[in-house]
Amino acid sequence: MNVAQQAINGLVIGSGYACVALGWTILLGAARLVNFAHGQMYMLAAFICWFILTRSGIGYPLAAAISIVAMALLGVGMQLMMGRLVMTQNLTSLMIVTLGFGYILQGVAGLLFGGAPHTITTELVQQKIQFGDVWFTSQELLIFVVTLILYGVVWLVLQRTRQGAIIRSVAEDPKLAQLFGIDSRSVYIAIFVLEAVLVALAAVLVAPRTPILTSMGFEEVIITFVIVVLGGIGNVGGALIVGMLLGLFTSFFGALVTPAYTTAAIFAVLLAFLIAKPEGLRTR
């Protein structure tokens, strides 16, 4: 086994995991909201990007941008419908509503794009970068760099800016924040749009690495769940670290044991963790 190569693979997989999980982490950490349609939104964003790339002459960056804008609009629509549930912080209902949204998205994607697997082909996937006996593609480098930048920016905005403070105050108590003149409803819409944009961005970056299917949303979210719980509900830094660690775990488990049961092994880690420390790595 080439340890260095597996480590590189692990970091690439891990940054992909972390990138997909970022939207959920913010949603949960900053707004105490859940979105079980996350996986299906990832799927839809990937399919929109694929559709534009194959049906028109538009290049990858523009196709990705259109896909992100489409998801942002979808995010506004979903949040407008869920408005009342969000304001009353009815988490149980929100969970089921978003699960329903996910199922609708899967049906719509099935109607529009069919059931066959597809691949998003970008030039970056084909460009190999070689250092000695380790190599990676330009796309993978892009995922790694963009993920780190996104986490840095999100952390700075949440902790160091007035907008971040507003978001955190709304998460603490939406009604009270309203008394202080903050339009909680708009803040929630903004956060949800951010979640939609981030998951779309993750999709157009990460999805080109593997074939895409309209039914993939179900599996796609599980790593996000594990990251969110292990990272300490809504802890941005924790999510990045756990994402990277899970990526390394996936890479080495796949190489040393079997790739077929990687998710099961990750879940075993989660279960052990839930028994030992049900509140997650949260420190605050």
Partner: peptide, 14 residues
């Protein structure tokens, strides 16, 4: 039918 089932779920809760 997926769209119908999901829509029923969402609309009822909303």
């Amino acid at each position: 039918n997926k769209v119908v089932l999901g829509t029923v779920l969402v609309l009822m809760l909303v």
